[in-house]
């Protein structure tokens, strides 16, 4: 909280000199970067998804700013100076905003922890919150340094198992998180697996040391109920399983570091447990 106030105070002199750009975000990840960095009143709209606590860590804060569905029409009607988006979403809305003269920032999905401070700074510069950005990246770097551990070929393996039986593969943010937490990604170790999906039977027959259940999405579905199958509960009892809220690593944010902390703790439990 103090950080936010400091950030706001820091913005005031600049605001006097030149009005802050009004910003619209059309993607849940840029929504949250915006919420972290922007001054109040600067946000003209974020996506409704940002208010969903299953997907967004900053859902509470998102309730205090306007939301708009990320369609071209809505984006144009909001008259933004800056539009934030991700490479694969709302392409038409971004193009239209570009044609209307808005500054469009397109960020690729974060694939490693190292992308996070870069993305924070890109957004911070675009919306005129450079100081706040520096502050966040500094805190991020020091926390990451305190959390991450060296890699070892004998590290325990961990599988990130998501609804419908999808496993997280190399080259993704969660994979990098595993590496920083001192765990080897099971999907990389079991390299002969060609599919992104893994049956429960395979998982139980060739078990990883730690099963990370990627909890995402509200409500009930067959895909989600798979993670609660009694066979998994029995095969990965106690220290061998960890429930991970997917929102922590769905987007690259400073909060993503919480997932490293959780995994480190789980790894420590593995070593003490039989």
């Amino acid at each position: 909280m103090a950080g936010i106030i400091a950030g706001i105070l820091g913005c005031i002199p600049i605001a006097r000199a030149q009005p802050l750009p009004r910003v619209v975000s059309v993607n849940v990840c840029t929504d949250q970067l915006l919420l972290l960095l922007a001054a109040p009143g600067q946000i003209a709209g974020i996506t409704p998804l940002a208010r969903d606590c299953w997907n967004a860590v900053l859902c509470e804060r998102a309730r205090q700013v306007p939301v708009l569905r990320p369609t071209a029409e809505n984006v144009v009607a909001a008259h933004p100076d800056v539009v934030l988006g991700e490479s694969y979403t709302a392409a038409v809305a971004l193009q239209v905003a570009r044609d209307r003269g808005a500054r469009v920032i397109v960020l690729p999905p974060a694939q490693a922890l190292a992308d996070i401070p870069d993305q924070i700074m890109v957004v911070a510069r675009a919306i005129g919150a450079t100081a706040r950005g520096r502050e966040l990246t500094g805190a991020f770097a020091s926390r990451l340094a305190s959390l991450s551990t060296g890699r070892d070929p004998a590290d325990p393996t961990a599988a990130i198992y998501a609804a419908s039986g999808f496993v997280t593969r190399a080259g993704s943010l969660p994979d990098d998180v595993l590496a920083h937490a001192g765990l080897r990604n099971y999907a990389t170790v079991m390299a002969q697996q060609t599919s992104a999906r893994l049956s429960m039977e395979m998982l139980i027959a060739h078990p990883p040391d730690l099963l990370v259940l990627d909890r995402s999405g509200q409500g009930t579905s067959l895909a989600q109920s798979m993670l609660d199958h009694p066979a998994l509960k029995q095969a990965f009892a106690g220290a061998h399983h960890l429930d991970m809220p997917a929102r922590l690593w769905l987007c690259g944010l400073p909060q993503t570091l919480d997932s490293i902390a959780m995994l480190r703790a789980a790894r420590d439990r593995l070593e003490t447990a039989p």
């Binding site: 609804a163 995402s216 509200q218």
Partner: peptide, 12 residues
């Protein structure tokens, strides 16, 4: 329904 996966489960 609320679940984001539900609409893909029509096949089941």
């Amino acid at each position: 329904v609320p679940s984001p996966y539900a609409s893909f489960e029509i096949m089941h």
